[in-house]
Write a protein that binds this DNA or RNA. Structure first.
Lengths: 337, 337
DNA sequence: CCGGTTACTGAAATCGTTTTCATACCTGAA
DNA sequence: TTCAGGTATGAAAACGATTTCAGTAACCGG
């Protein structure tokens, strides 16, 4: 492995000049630059990144925290974020917290040890009070998350609006007994959607009915469970709003199995616009989230913070969601076949 | 930010002793160790990882190359790999080549610049000749990939067997006109499956029929296309083997739409055992791949190579696949409802 | 009592860069 | 002619750790 010293020697110049060429500093004459370039090529020289990071106090690496990657929403987020990072010359280190506060805290040391220039949290497991001290070591940006206490930038999707448009759509279809099915109880995302859900109900003079509320629904299996719970009620709902396409798919799959016709007997709306929404029969009405845009913005904000060094500043960037109507809520769409 | 020097001063000792405490070296008396620990805690000291890497010539970071993360097979791989990495005290940098040889080559510089200790290739876009020179900078391990020329460890799944058991299952169900539907033409994975496919056919005295062969099928949309291509044939196949559950789902979804009964008129077998196989109606017979085991093994092999420094050694680790029979190939399974 | 381990400690070299500082030349304006 | 300022270069310090080397004290067997 050749070092900058080797290049300097071969070119008959000093380390300084070689470094200047590498970093495109001004004040290097054209002929010396040529000499250096030639020497670098001849030796197959590439600067050592540890040495670089040590001296310049930056790593060009960003850590992305997600609960887990398999969840399609987060795969999409990771994919988009990695692409944006690469475009800006950054590498991405993936940290799966697996919903564990300890793991999250442990990964936070990446910032403290200066292994990364910043941390993007697409999932928060600890109280902000616990996380805040890490701000002295580098920037933290929230992505798809939000915390009342957090004095850092937050890039998010307008989940209130998402819950609202989905519910309003069901109301417009004439439904009045609408079940509500959400994931994690702690999640701000889910809470915001619920606000939107309630807001839509309120506009139609309806109240939130606790018997129609189902918690902790994450996967298709939970959807199957919820389907049976709903049908076992004295007056089952005629429509259901779910927090994820997987859950919606589980409900629909189970309904199909038991001869419950969708959307006639039960209308279903999902969330995320995953591929499955178009594969299952009937296809699923859902809410599209501009994950790519959010990821890109979060990364840009992060890079901005890295450069400006003003971390403790609250900023909110919000993107709108879009309803995508398919067969699971609109009967006549089926007739078109 | 405090340095090791600050700790040494506060403890009234030398940098050397502090370093010894940090790295659990022997020959540090208990009382000095206490002093150091106390000083570290008081200052909130954490060693700077760039400085560490520079001196010790290792980063405890591994790069994982995948074409893209959204593909469920690769999300699963990344998830499993990250968990294993964390357990061994390593970080994972994600590199999406997006099927581009240039991007792959570019990411390879992570090894050259010593930003990572090793590279795990879960996707190969360049000829091995192009990649091989990078071996002088650090270890490369293939995961779910294989190259005749590559003189490095390869951790893989027995795709020949996978193609074989899936096809044999169809043959045992009485099918004789079996279509074959694969993804990338360059992929060794797909080639191996085809070998297994042909082997099973041969055992039943059948020949590979080119009219039943479909290439470049990756997504559900391709499945829909293939369905129509198959049905347009003079004598359509009675069964189809696909290289992915998504494609299988596309075929089934399109078949459902057009009143083609599965498995009576067309039996379908997928690959990967993704969640969708149990969500769609009918559920999909598929081949389960022990991705977690493979990922774990690949990481262990990588760590072993990092320590042993013997990179240019060919080793092959292979895991068996398992057929999972569901409704898309076995008629009476539907009857159980 | 001496020579040879073993236990413990620190000064200084080292890893490979970037950055600061000093120096020197050249140009053009006063 | 002089002086300010732009251009070009290199010596040496700095980044923050680990590792080598040397040295001292304690212990132990002959």
């Amino acid at each position: 492995m050749s070092t900058i010293e080797d290049v300097a020697k071969l070119a008959g110049l000093s380390r300084t000049t070689v470094s200047r060429v590498i970093n495109n500093h001004p004040y290097v004459s054209e002929d010396k630059r040529k000499l250096v370039m030639e020497a670098m090529k001849q030796l197959g020289y590439v600067p050592n990144s540890s040495a670089r990071s040590l001296r310049s106090q930056k790593t060009d690496v960003i850590a992305l925290f997600v609960p887990r990657i398999m969840n399609p929403f987060f795969s999409q987020l990771v994919e988009a974020m990695e692409i944006s990072a690469a475009e800006h010359g950054y590498q991405l280190i993936i940290c799966q917290t697996r919903y564990s506060p300890e793991k999250e805290l442990n990964y936070m040391n990446l910032l403290k040890t200066k292994q990364v220039d910043g941390v993007i949290l697409a999932s928060i497991q600890n109280d902000w009070k616990v996380l805040e001290p890490f701000l002295q070591y580098g920037p933290i940006v929230l992505c798809n998350e939000f915390d009342e206490q957090a004095n850092v930038p937050s890039v998010m999707l307008d989940q209130v609006q998402g819950g609202y448009i989905a519910t309003k759509h069901l109301l417009e279809q004439g439904h009045r007994r609408i079940a509500y099915c959400r994931g994690s109880t702690r999640s701000n995302v889910a809470s915001h959607r619920e606000i939107g859900f309630r807001k839509a109900l309120a506009e139609y003079g309806l109240e939130f009915d606790e018997q129609y509320a189902f918690r902790d629904a994450f996967h298709s299996e939970d959807g199957r469970r919820v389907f049976h719970q709903m049908m076992a009620l004295p007056t089952p709902p005629t429509a259901v709003f779910t927090g994820s396409d997987e859950v919606a798919a589980g409900i629909i799959s189970e309904a199909n199995k038991h001869g419950c016709r969708i959307p006639d007997q039960l209308a279903v709306v999902g969330f995320d616009n995953q591929e499955i929404t178009e594969l299952i029969e009937p296809s699923i009405t859902t809410v599209h989230q501009p994950v790519d845009k959010m990821a890109q913005k979060a990364l840009e904000v992060m890079i901005d913070k890295i450069h400006s060094r003003k971390y403790k500043q609250r900023e909110i960037y919000e993107f709108p969601l879009k309803l995508i109507v398919r067969e699971s809520t609109v009967a006549n769409k089926l007739a078109q076949l």
